[in-house]
Write a protein that binds this DNA or RNA. Structure first.
Lengths: 245, 245
DNA sequence: TGTAGACCATGACGCAGCGTCAAAGTCAAG
DNA sequence: CTTGACTTTGACGCTGCGTCATGGTCTACA
Protein backbone atom coordinates (compact mmCIF):
# COMPACT_ATOMS: atom_id res chain seq x y z
CA UNK A 1 0.00 0.00 0.00
CA UNK A 2 1.37 3.33 -1.03
CA UNK A 3 -0.97 6.27 -0.74
CA UNK A 4 -0.42 9.80 -1.93
CA UNK A 5 -1.43 12.73 0.25
CA UNK A 6 -4.79 13.22 -1.37
CA UNK A 7 -5.56 9.51 -1.35
CA UNK A 8 -4.64 9.28 2.30
CA UNK A 9 -6.67 12.37 3.02
CA UNK A 10 -9.74 10.94 1.36
CA UNK A 11 -9.36 7.63 3.13
CA UNK A 12 -9.07 9.19 6.56
CA UNK A 13 -11.60 11.94 6.02
CA UNK A 14 -9.22 14.80 6.70
CA UNK A 15 -7.70 17.48 4.52
CA UNK A 16 -4.31 17.32 2.87
CA UNK A 17 -3.32 20.37 4.85
CA UNK A 18 -4.02 18.46 8.03
CA UNK A 19 -1.71 15.67 6.94
CA UNK A 20 1.01 18.15 6.10
CA UNK A 21 0.58 19.79 9.47
CA UNK A 22 0.75 16.48 11.29
CA UNK A 23 4.00 15.79 9.49
CA UNK A 24 5.34 19.17 10.47
CA UNK A 25 4.74 18.73 14.16
CA UNK A 26 6.10 15.21 14.09
CA UNK A 27 2.81 13.51 14.74
CA UNK A 28 2.63 11.47 11.56
CA UNK A 29 5.80 11.10 9.53
CA UNK A 30 5.28 9.14 6.33
CA UNK A 31 8.03 7.95 4.06
CA UNK A 32 9.28 10.87 2.03
CA UNK A 33 10.79 10.41 -1.41
CA UNK A 34 14.31 11.84 -1.26
CA UNK A 35 14.23 13.49 -4.66
CA UNK A 36 10.75 14.86 -5.19
CA UNK A 37 9.84 15.32 -1.55
CA UNK A 38 6.53 13.56 -2.14
CA UNK A 39 4.96 11.87 0.89
CA UNK A 40 3.87 8.27 0.67
CA UNK A 41 1.69 6.74 3.35
CA UNK A 42 1.79 3.05 4.22
CA UNK A 43 -0.36 0.74 6.31
CA UNK A 44 1.40 1.65 9.52
CA UNK A 45 0.66 5.30 8.86
CA UNK A 46 -3.00 4.51 8.31
CA UNK A 47 -3.15 2.60 11.58
CA UNK A 48 -1.44 5.43 13.40
CA UNK A 49 -3.80 7.92 11.85
CA UNK A 50 -6.72 5.96 13.20
CA UNK A 51 -5.26 6.24 16.67
CA UNK A 52 -4.70 9.94 16.19
CA UNK A 53 -8.28 10.49 15.11
CA UNK A 54 -9.56 8.64 18.13
CA UNK A 55 -7.61 10.72 20.57
CA UNK A 56 -8.51 13.86 18.68
CA UNK A 57 -12.12 12.86 19.00
CA UNK A 58 -11.59 12.73 22.74
CA UNK A 59 -10.25 16.29 22.64
CA UNK A 60 -6.64 15.52 23.36
CA UNK A 61 -4.26 18.15 22.06
CA UNK A 62 -2.05 17.04 19.20
CA UNK A 63 1.06 17.29 21.32
CA UNK A 64 -0.58 15.11 23.95
CA UNK A 65 -1.44 12.59 21.26
CA UNK A 66 2.15 12.63 20.13
CA UNK A 67 3.35 11.90 23.63
CA UNK A 68 0.82 9.15 24.15
CA UNK A 69 1.70 7.39 20.94
CA UNK A 70 5.41 7.91 21.48
CA UNK A 71 5.24 6.22 24.84
CA UNK A 72 7.49 3.16 24.57
CA UNK A 73 5.13 1.31 26.89
CA UNK A 74 2.10 2.03 24.71
CA UNK A 75 -0.31 -0.87 25.00
CA UNK A 76 -3.02 -1.08 22.34
CA UNK A 77 -5.37 -3.11 24.48
CA UNK A 78 -5.15 -0.79 27.42
CA UNK A 79 -5.51 2.20 25.13
CA UNK A 80 -8.75 0.77 23.80
CA UNK A 81 -10.09 0.37 27.31
CA UNK A 82 -9.25 3.92 28.15
CA UNK A 83 -10.72 5.22 24.94
CA UNK A 84 -13.90 3.38 25.71
CA UNK A 85 -14.07 4.91 29.14
CA UNK A 86 -13.59 8.43 27.85
CA UNK A 87 -16.03 7.92 25.02
CA UNK A 88 -18.63 6.74 27.50
CA UNK A 89 -18.06 9.76 29.68
CA UNK A 90 -18.55 11.96 26.68
CA UNK A 91 -21.73 10.19 25.70
CA UNK A 92 -23.08 10.39 29.22
CA UNK A 93 -22.53 14.09 29.21
CA UNK A 94 -24.46 14.38 25.98
CA UNK A 95 -27.23 12.35 27.52
CA UNK A 96 -27.42 14.78 30.41
CA UNK A 97 -27.72 17.66 28.01
CA UNK A 98 -30.39 15.80 26.09
CA UNK A 99 -32.32 15.23 29.28
CA UNK A 100 -32.12 18.94 29.97
CA UNK A 101 -33.56 19.73 26.56
CA UNK A 102 -36.32 17.20 27.04
CA UNK A 103 -37.21 18.71 30.38
CA UNK A 104 -37.40 22.15 28.88
CA UNK A 105 -39.57 20.83 26.08
CA UNK A 106 -41.97 19.54 28.70
CA UNK A 107 -42.15 22.99 30.10
CA UNK A 108 -40.00 22.62 33.18
CA UNK A 109 -37.95 25.74 33.39
CA UNK A 110 -34.77 24.17 34.55
CA UNK A 111 -31.78 26.41 34.51
CA UNK A 112 -28.97 24.06 35.12
CA UNK A 113 -25.49 24.88 34.07
CA UNK A 114 -24.34 21.77 35.80
CA UNK A 115 -25.17 19.63 32.80
CA UNK A 116 -22.61 21.52 30.77
CA UNK A 117 -19.89 20.67 33.20
CA UNK A 118 -17.10 18.72 31.60
CA UNK A 119 -14.53 18.93 34.35
CA UNK A 120 -14.79 15.25 35.14
CA UNK A 121 -14.01 14.38 31.58
CA UNK A 122 -11.20 16.88 31.39
CA UNK A 123 -9.69 15.56 34.57
CA UNK A 124 -9.67 12.04 33.21
CA UNK A 125 -8.13 13.27 30.01
CA UNK A 126 -5.44 15.25 31.78
CA UNK A 127 -4.64 12.31 33.98
CA UNK A 128 -4.19 10.10 30.97
CA UNK A 129 -2.02 12.57 29.14
CA UNK A 130 0.06 13.35 32.19
CA UNK A 131 0.68 9.70 32.80
CA UNK A 132 1.97 9.15 29.29
CA UNK A 133 4.05 12.26 29.55
CA UNK A 134 5.57 11.14 32.80
CA UNK A 135 6.54 7.78 31.41
CA UNK A 136 7.85 9.31 28.28
CA UNK A 137 10.08 11.60 30.27
CA UNK A 138 8.50 14.98 29.88
CA UNK A 139 9.81 15.24 26.37
CA UNK A 140 7.50 18.01 25.48
CA UNK A 141 8.57 20.44 28.15
CA UNK A 142 12.12 19.61 27.36
CA UNK A 143 11.66 20.28 23.68
CA UNK A 144 10.05 23.60 24.38
CA UNK A 145 12.91 24.72 26.56
CA UNK A 146 15.33 23.63 23.91
CA UNK A 147 13.50 25.52 21.25
CA UNK A 148 13.72 28.63 23.33
CA UNK A 149 17.41 28.02 23.88
CA UNK A 150 18.05 27.45 20.21
CA UNK A 151 16.04 30.52 19.32
CA UNK A 152 18.49 32.56 21.34
CA UNK A 153 16.10 33.55 24.08
CA UNK A 154 18.33 32.23 26.78
CA UNK A 155 22.01 33.06 27.19
CA UNK A 156 22.74 31.25 30.40
CA UNK A 157 25.77 29.08 30.98
CA UNK A 158 23.50 26.11 30.47
CA UNK A 159 22.61 27.32 27.01
CA UNK A 160 26.27 27.80 26.15
CA UNK A 161 27.09 24.31 27.31
CA UNK A 162 24.32 22.92 25.18
CA UNK A 163 25.38 24.89 22.17
CA UNK A 164 28.92 23.61 22.61
CA UNK A 165 27.66 20.05 22.33
CA UNK A 166 25.66 20.88 19.24
CA UNK A 167 28.69 22.52 17.67
CA UNK A 168 30.66 19.37 18.30
CA UNK A 169 27.89 17.41 16.60
CA UNK A 170 27.99 19.74 13.64
CA UNK A 171 31.77 19.32 13.36
CA UNK A 172 31.38 15.55 13.24
CA UNK A 173 28.41 15.48 10.94
CA UNK A 174 30.26 14.06 7.94
CA UNK A 175 31.94 11.27 9.90
CA UNK A 176 30.72 7.84 10.95
CA UNK A 177 27.92 8.15 13.52
CA UNK A 178 29.06 4.90 15.09
CA UNK A 179 32.64 6.09 15.57
CA UNK A 180 34.07 6.53 19.09
CA UNK A 181 33.96 10.34 18.86
CA UNK A 182 30.27 10.23 18.04
CA UNK A 183 29.70 7.80 20.87
CA UNK A 184 31.42 10.08 23.33
CA UNK A 185 29.34 12.95 22.06
CA UNK A 186 26.12 11.05 22.65
CA UNK A 187 27.25 10.10 26.12
CA UNK A 188 27.99 13.72 26.95
CA UNK A 189 24.64 14.74 25.59
CA UNK A 190 22.85 12.11 27.64
CA UNK A 191 24.75 13.25 30.69
CA UNK A 192 23.81 16.86 30.02
CA UNK A 193 20.13 16.00 29.87
CA UNK A 194 20.31 13.90 33.00
CA UNK A 195 22.07 16.69 34.87
CA UNK A 196 19.87 19.55 33.78
CA UNK A 197 16.51 18.00 33.08
CA UNK A 198 15.62 14.52 34.20
CA UNK A 199 16.99 11.03 34.28
CA UNK A 200 17.62 10.26 30.64
CA UNK A 201 17.34 6.54 30.05
CA UNK A 202 18.46 4.88 26.85
CA UNK A 203 14.85 4.47 25.93
CA UNK A 204 14.10 8.15 26.22
CA UNK A 205 17.31 9.01 24.46
CA UNK A 206 16.26 6.85 21.52
CA UNK A 207 12.94 8.64 21.42
CA UNK A 208 14.67 12.00 21.37
CA UNK A 209 16.85 10.78 18.55
CA UNK A 210 13.95 9.95 16.29
CA UNK A 211 12.29 13.21 17.20
CA UNK A 212 15.31 15.21 16.11
CA UNK A 213 14.59 14.28 12.53
CA UNK A 214 10.84 13.73 12.71
CA UNK A 215 9.91 17.04 14.27
CA UNK A 216 10.64 19.77 11.80
CA UNK A 217 10.94 22.55 14.35
CA UNK A 218 13.52 20.59 16.25
CA UNK A 219 15.41 19.59 13.16
CA UNK A 220 15.65 23.15 11.93
CA UNK A 221 17.02 24.38 15.21
CA UNK A 222 19.69 21.72 15.16
CA UNK A 223 20.54 22.26 11.53
CA UNK A 224 21.33 25.87 12.25
CA UNK A 225 24.64 24.55 13.53
CA UNK A 226 25.20 23.09 10.06
CA UNK A 227 22.99 21.26 7.64
CA UNK A 228 22.68 17.59 8.52
CA UNK A 229 23.50 18.02 12.19
CA UNK A 230 20.08 16.77 13.23
CA UNK A 231 20.22 13.59 11.20
CA UNK A 232 23.80 12.95 12.28
CA UNK A 233 22.94 13.29 15.93
CA UNK A 234 19.93 11.09 15.40
CA UNK A 235 22.04 8.44 13.72
CA UNK A 236 24.69 8.65 16.41
CA UNK A 237 22.06 8.13 19.08
CA UNK A 238 20.64 5.17 17.19
CA UNK A 239 24.12 3.63 16.96
CA UNK A 240 24.74 4.26 20.64
CA UNK A 241 21.46 2.77 21.79
CA UNK A 242 21.75 -0.11 19.34
CA UNK A 243 25.10 -1.10 20.77
CA UNK A 244 23.64 -1.24 24.26
CA UNK A 245 20.13 -2.52 23.49
CA UNK B 1 -30.07 39.62 40.30
CA UNK B 2 -26.91 41.47 39.56
CA UNK B 3 -23.86 39.36 38.95
CA UNK B 4 -20.28 40.50 38.57
CA UNK B 5 -18.07 38.96 35.92
CA UNK B 6 -16.49 36.41 38.19
CA UNK B 7 -19.84 35.47 39.71
CA UNK B 8 -21.36 35.06 36.29
CA UNK B 9 -18.33 33.09 35.16
CA UNK B 10 -18.60 30.71 38.06
CA UNK B 11 -22.32 30.26 37.57
CA UNK B 12 -22.00 29.45 33.89
CA UNK B 13 -18.84 27.42 34.13
CA UNK B 14 -16.80 29.58 31.81
CA UNK B 15 -13.87 31.92 32.31
CA UNK B 16 -14.10 35.65 32.83
CA UNK B 17 -12.06 36.09 29.69
CA UNK B 18 -14.72 34.22 27.77
CA UNK B 19 -17.38 36.59 29.03
CA UNK B 20 -15.28 39.58 28.07
CA UNK B 21 -14.74 38.13 24.65
CA UNK B 22 -18.42 37.45 24.15
CA UNK B 23 -19.09 41.05 25.01
CA UNK B 24 -16.47 42.20 22.56
CA UNK B 25 -17.95 40.35 19.63
CA UNK B 26 -21.46 41.42 20.54
CA UNK B 27 -22.66 38.01 21.55
CA UNK B 28 -23.53 38.82 25.14
CA UNK B 29 -23.80 42.46 26.13
CA UNK B 30 -24.53 42.95 29.81
CA UNK B 31 -25.41 46.23 31.38
CA UNK B 32 -22.29 48.29 31.75
CA UNK B 33 -21.89 50.86 34.49
CA UNK B 34 -21.23 54.19 32.79
CA UNK B 35 -18.60 55.38 35.24
CA UNK B 36 -16.55 52.39 36.31
CA UNK B 37 -17.09 50.31 33.19
CA UNK B 38 -17.95 47.31 35.35
CA UNK B 39 -20.20 44.72 33.74
CA UNK B 40 -23.30 43.53 35.52
CA UNK B 41 -25.19 40.47 34.36
CA UNK B 42 -28.90 40.03 34.88
CA UNK B 43 -31.33 37.16 34.50
CA UNK B 44 -31.82 37.75 30.80
CA UNK B 45 -28.07 37.50 30.31
CA UNK B 46 -27.99 34.23 32.19
CA UNK B 47 -30.77 32.83 30.03
CA UNK B 48 -29.02 33.99 26.89
CA UNK B 49 -25.79 32.47 28.08
CA UNK B 50 -27.51 29.16 28.48
CA UNK B 51 -28.61 29.32 24.86
CA UNK B 52 -25.11 30.25 23.79
CA UNK B 53 -23.63 27.33 25.65
CA UNK B 54 -26.06 24.95 24.01
CA UNK B 55 -25.23 26.08 20.53
CA UNK B 56 -21.55 26.10 21.34
CA UNK B 57 -21.93 22.54 22.53
CA UNK B 58 -23.32 21.74 19.11
CA UNK B 59 -20.20 23.27 17.53
CA UNK B 60 -21.80 26.33 16.06
CA UNK B 61 -19.39 29.19 15.52
CA UNK B 62 -19.91 32.16 17.79
CA UNK B 63 -20.92 34.35 14.89
CA UNK B 64 -23.49 31.78 13.84
CA UNK B 65 -24.83 31.74 17.37
CA UNK B 66 -25.09 35.50 17.29
CA UNK B 67 -27.09 35.35 14.10
CA UNK B 68 -29.36 32.62 15.38
CA UNK B 69 -30.15 34.46 18.59
CA UNK B 70 -30.51 37.77 16.78
CA UNK B 71 -33.14 36.33 14.50
CA UNK B 72 -36.32 38.31 15.19
CA UNK B 73 -38.35 35.18 14.50
CA UNK B 74 -36.42 33.12 17.01
CA UNK B 75 -38.74 30.56 18.51
CA UNK B 76 -37.64 28.94 21.75
CA UNK B 77 -39.74 25.86 21.31
CA UNK B 78 -38.54 25.19 17.81
CA UNK B 79 -34.98 25.88 18.87
CA UNK B 80 -35.31 23.20 21.54
CA UNK B 81 -36.53 20.69 18.99
CA UNK B 82 -33.61 21.43 16.73
CA UNK B 83 -31.14 21.28 19.56
CA UNK B 84 -32.50 17.90 20.49
CA UNK B 85 -32.11 16.64 16.96
CA UNK B 86 -28.52 17.79 16.70
CA UNK B 87 -27.67 16.46 20.14
CA UNK B 88 -29.03 13.08 19.14
CA UNK B 89 -27.01 13.06 15.98
CA UNK B 90 -23.91 13.81 17.99
CA UNK B 91 -24.69 11.06 20.45
CA UNK B 92 -25.31 8.58 17.68
CA UNK B 93 -21.95 9.36 16.22
CA UNK B 94 -20.33 8.72 19.58
CA UNK B 95 -22.19 5.45 19.78
CA UNK B 96 -20.78 4.41 16.43
CA UNK B 97 -17.29 5.19 17.64
CA UNK B 98 -17.96 3.25 20.81
CA UNK B 99 -19.10 0.29 18.78
CA UNK B 100 -15.89 0.49 16.81
CA UNK B 101 -13.83 0.41 20.00
CA UNK B 102 -15.84 -2.52 21.31
CA UNK B 103 -15.30 -4.44 18.10
CA UNK B 104 -11.57 -3.83 18.32
CA UNK B 105 -11.56 -4.95 21.92
CA UNK B 106 -13.13 -8.21 20.80
CA UNK B 107 -10.28 -8.66 18.41
CA UNK B 108 -11.98 -7.77 15.14
CA UNK B 109 -9.50 -5.72 13.21
CA UNK B 110 -11.90 -3.26 11.74
CA UNK B 111 -10.32 -0.31 10.06
CA UNK B 112 -13.22 1.94 9.48
CA UNK B 113 -12.77 5.62 9.07
CA UNK B 114 -16.43 5.87 8.28
CA UNK B 115 -17.38 6.01 11.94
CA UNK B 116 -15.45 9.25 12.27
CA UNK B 117 -17.50 10.89 9.59
CA UNK B 118 -19.36 13.91 10.83
CA UNK B 119 -20.49 15.36 7.55
CA UNK B 120 -24.14 14.59 8.22
CA UNK B 121 -24.00 16.52 11.44
CA UNK B 122 -22.12 19.37 9.86
CA UNK B 123 -24.64 19.59 7.07
CA UNK B 124 -27.51 19.84 9.53
CA UNK B 125 -25.66 22.49 11.45
CA UNK B 126 -24.87 24.52 8.36
CA UNK B 127 -28.44 24.27 7.22
CA UNK B 128 -29.67 25.60 10.52
CA UNK B 129 -27.19 28.45 10.62
CA UNK B 130 -27.81 29.38 6.99
CA UNK B 131 -31.52 29.50 7.60
CA UNK B 132 -31.18 31.89 10.50
CA UNK B 133 -28.76 33.99 8.53
CA UNK B 134 -31.14 34.20 5.61
CA UNK B 135 -34.01 35.34 7.79
CA UNK B 136 -31.85 37.79 9.62
CA UNK B 137 -30.82 39.37 6.37
CA UNK B 138 -27.25 38.30 5.93
CA UNK B 139 -26.16 40.74 8.55
CA UNK B 140 -22.87 39.07 9.02
CA UNK B 141 -21.72 39.39 5.44
CA UNK B 142 -22.91 42.91 5.47
CA UNK B 143 -20.99 43.76 8.59
CA UNK B 144 -17.87 42.27 7.15
CA UNK B 145 -18.11 44.31 4.00
CA UNK B 146 -18.68 47.40 6.09
CA UNK B 147 -15.69 46.66 8.22
CA UNK B 148 -13.57 46.42 5.13
CA UNK B 149 -15.00 49.67 3.88
CA UNK B 150 -14.41 51.40 7.17
CA UNK B 151 -10.90 50.00 7.36
CA UNK B 152 -10.16 51.80 4.13
CA UNK B 153 -9.73 48.73 1.98
CA UNK B 154 -12.30 49.83 -0.53
CA UNK B 155 -12.36 53.17 -2.27
CA UNK B 156 -15.27 52.69 -4.59
CA UNK B 157 -18.00 55.22 -5.14
CA UNK B 158 -20.16 53.08 -2.91
CA UNK B 159 -17.69 53.43 -0.07
CA UNK B 160 -17.62 57.19 -0.54
CA UNK B 161 -21.38 57.38 -0.47
CA UNK B 162 -21.45 55.38 2.73
CA UNK B 163 -18.79 57.51 4.33
CA UNK B 164 -20.77 60.61 3.44
CA UNK B 165 -23.72 59.29 5.40
CA UNK B 166 -21.53 58.49 8.36
CA UNK B 167 -20.02 61.96 8.27
CA UNK B 168 -23.51 63.40 8.35
CA UNK B 169 -24.23 61.25 11.38
CA UNK B 170 -21.07 62.45 13.07
CA UNK B 171 -22.06 66.06 12.42
CA UNK B 172 -25.41 65.49 14.09
CA UNK B 173 -24.14 63.42 16.95
CA UNK B 174 -24.74 66.06 19.63
CA UNK B 175 -28.28 66.81 18.50
CA UNK B 176 -31.59 65.11 19.24
CA UNK B 177 -31.68 61.64 17.66
CA UNK B 178 -35.44 61.99 17.19
CA UNK B 179 -35.15 65.29 15.28
CA UNK B 180 -36.23 65.48 11.63
CA UNK B 181 -32.61 65.72 10.40
CA UNK B 182 -31.76 62.50 12.20
CA UNK B 183 -34.88 60.90 10.80
CA UNK B 184 -33.92 61.85 7.26
CA UNK B 185 -30.46 60.48 7.89
CA UNK B 186 -31.82 57.14 9.00
CA UNK B 187 -34.09 57.01 5.98
CA UNK B 188 -31.16 57.65 3.67
CA UNK B 189 -29.16 55.02 5.41
CA UNK B 190 -31.96 52.48 5.11
CA UNK B 191 -32.29 53.35 1.45
CA UNK B 192 -28.57 52.93 0.94
CA UNK B 193 -28.63 49.45 2.44
CA UNK B 194 -31.67 48.45 0.42
CA UNK B 195 -30.08 49.67 -2.78
CA UNK B 196 -26.64 48.17 -2.30
CA UNK B 197 -27.21 45.14 -0.14
CA UNK B 198 -30.62 43.67 0.48
CA UNK B 199 -34.12 44.70 1.33
CA UNK B 200 -33.71 46.45 4.65
CA UNK B 201 -36.88 46.10 6.66
CA UNK B 202 -37.53 48.09 9.82
CA UNK B 203 -36.92 44.96 11.78
CA UNK B 204 -33.49 44.43 10.30
CA UNK B 205 -32.68 48.09 10.65
CA UNK B 206 -33.48 47.91 14.34
CA UNK B 207 -31.18 44.93 14.66
CA UNK B 208 -28.40 46.82 12.95
CA UNK B 209 -28.95 49.71 15.29
CA UNK B 210 -28.40 47.67 18.41
CA UNK B 211 -25.41 46.02 16.80
CA UNK B 212 -23.74 49.35 16.18
CA UNK B 213 -23.24 49.79 19.87
CA UNK B 214 -23.14 46.18 20.98
CA UNK B 215 -20.46 44.99 18.59
CA UNK B 216 -17.24 46.66 19.52
CA UNK B 217 -15.61 46.31 16.12
CA UNK B 218 -18.53 47.99 14.49
CA UNK B 219 -18.74 50.72 17.07
CA UNK B 220 -15.09 51.58 16.73
CA UNK B 221 -15.32 51.88 13.00
CA UNK B 222 -18.24 54.25 13.31
CA UNK B 223 -16.64 56.26 16.07
CA UNK B 224 -13.70 56.99 13.81
CA UNK B 225 -15.97 59.59 12.28
CA UNK B 226 -16.24 61.17 15.70
CA UNK B 227 -16.68 59.79 19.19
CA UNK B 228 -20.31 58.98 19.89
CA UNK B 229 -21.34 58.56 16.26
CA UNK B 230 -22.20 54.91 16.78
CA UNK B 231 -24.46 55.49 19.75
CA UNK B 232 -26.08 58.48 18.05
CA UNK B 233 -26.86 56.49 14.94
CA UNK B 234 -28.14 53.68 17.09
CA UNK B 235 -30.42 56.05 19.00
CA UNK B 236 -31.65 57.67 15.80
CA UNK B 237 -32.54 54.27 14.39
CA UNK B 238 -34.36 53.37 17.59
CA UNK B 239 -36.32 56.60 17.42
CA UNK B 240 -37.13 56.03 13.77
CA UNK B 241 -38.30 52.47 14.24
CA UNK B 242 -40.18 53.34 17.42
CA UNK B 243 -42.18 56.00 15.62
CA UNK B 244 -43.23 53.45 13.01
CA UNK B 245 -43.48 50.35 15.16
C1' DT C 1 9.83 14.63 -27.39
C1' DG C 2 7.17 18.21 -25.93
C1' DT C 3 3.42 19.96 -23.38
C1' DA C 4 -0.81 20.07 -20.90
C1' DG C 5 -3.18 19.14 -16.78
C1' DA C 6 -3.39 17.03 -12.52
C1' DC C 7 -0.85 16.42 -8.66
C1' DC C 8 2.66 17.76 -5.12
C1' DA C 9 5.97 20.81 -2.23
C1' DT C 10 7.11 24.77 0.79
C1' DG C 11 6.14 29.25 2.77
C1' DA C 12 3.47 32.68 4.42
C1' DC C 13 -0.50 34.80 6.11
C1' DG C 14 -5.15 34.55 8.36
C1' DC C 15 -8.64 32.97 11.49
C1' DA C 16 -11.47 31.55 15.80
C1' DG C 17 -11.63 31.24 20.55
C1' DC C 18 -9.89 31.98 23.89
C1' DG C 19 -5.32 31.88 27.86
C1' DT C 20 -2.30 34.86 29.89
C1' DC C 21 0.08 38.44 31.16
C1' DA C 22 0.75 43.84 32.32
C1' DA C 23 -0.82 48.28 33.86
C1' DA C 24 -4.12 50.80 35.84
C1' DG C 25 -8.68 51.90 37.88
C1' DT C 26 -12.61 50.53 41.55
C1' DC C 27 -14.73 48.88 45.58
C1' DA C 28 -15.66 47.22 50.32
C1' DA C 29 -13.62 46.35 54.87
C1' DG C 30 -11.13 47.51 58.60
C1' DC D 1 -6.99 55.93 54.25
C1' DT D 2 -4.93 52.03 53.16
C1' DT D 3 -5.12 47.25 51.89
C1' DG D 4 -6.49 43.57 49.15
C1' DA D 5 -9.75 41.61 46.22
C1' DC D 6 -11.80 42.64 42.10
C1' DT D 7 -12.30 45.04 37.85
C1' DT D 8 -11.04 47.34 33.36
C1' DT D 9 -8.57 47.64 28.66
C1' DG D 10 -4.86 46.29 25.73
C1' DA D 11 -1.71 43.40 23.78
C1' DC D 12 0.53 39.22 22.67
C1' DG D 13 0.50 34.01 22.40
C1' DC D 14 -1.37 29.62 21.33
C1' DT D 15 -3.60 25.62 18.63
C1' DG D 16 -5.22 23.55 14.53
C1' DC D 17 -5.82 24.14 10.81
C1' DG D 18 -7.88 27.05 5.85
C1' DT D 19 -6.24 29.42 2.07
C1' DC D 20 -3.55 31.44 -1.08
C1' DA D 21 0.89 32.12 -3.94
C1' DT D 22 4.75 30.21 -6.19
C1' DG D 23 7.00 26.73 -8.12
C1' DG D 24 8.42 21.70 -8.85
C1' DT D 25 6.77 16.76 -10.51
C1' DC D 26 4.36 13.17 -12.75
C1' DT D 27 1.73 11.01 -16.24
C1' DA D 28 -0.66 10.94 -20.57
C1' DC D 29 -1.38 11.94 -24.91
C1' DA D 30 -0.16 14.00 -29.25
Amino acid sequence: MRLSVSQMAKLCGVSARTLRYYGQIGLLHPETAADSGYRWYGEADVARMRQILFYRELDFSLSDIRDILADPHYDKQEALLRQRRLLRMKRDRLDRLLALVEANLKGDKIMEFQAFDSSELEAARREYAAEAKARWGDTDAWRQSQEKLAAGQDWSAQAEEMNAIFRRAAALRDTDPAAPEARTLVEDWKQFISTHCYDCTDEILAGLGTMYTADERFRKNLDRFGGGTASFLSAAITAYCGSRG
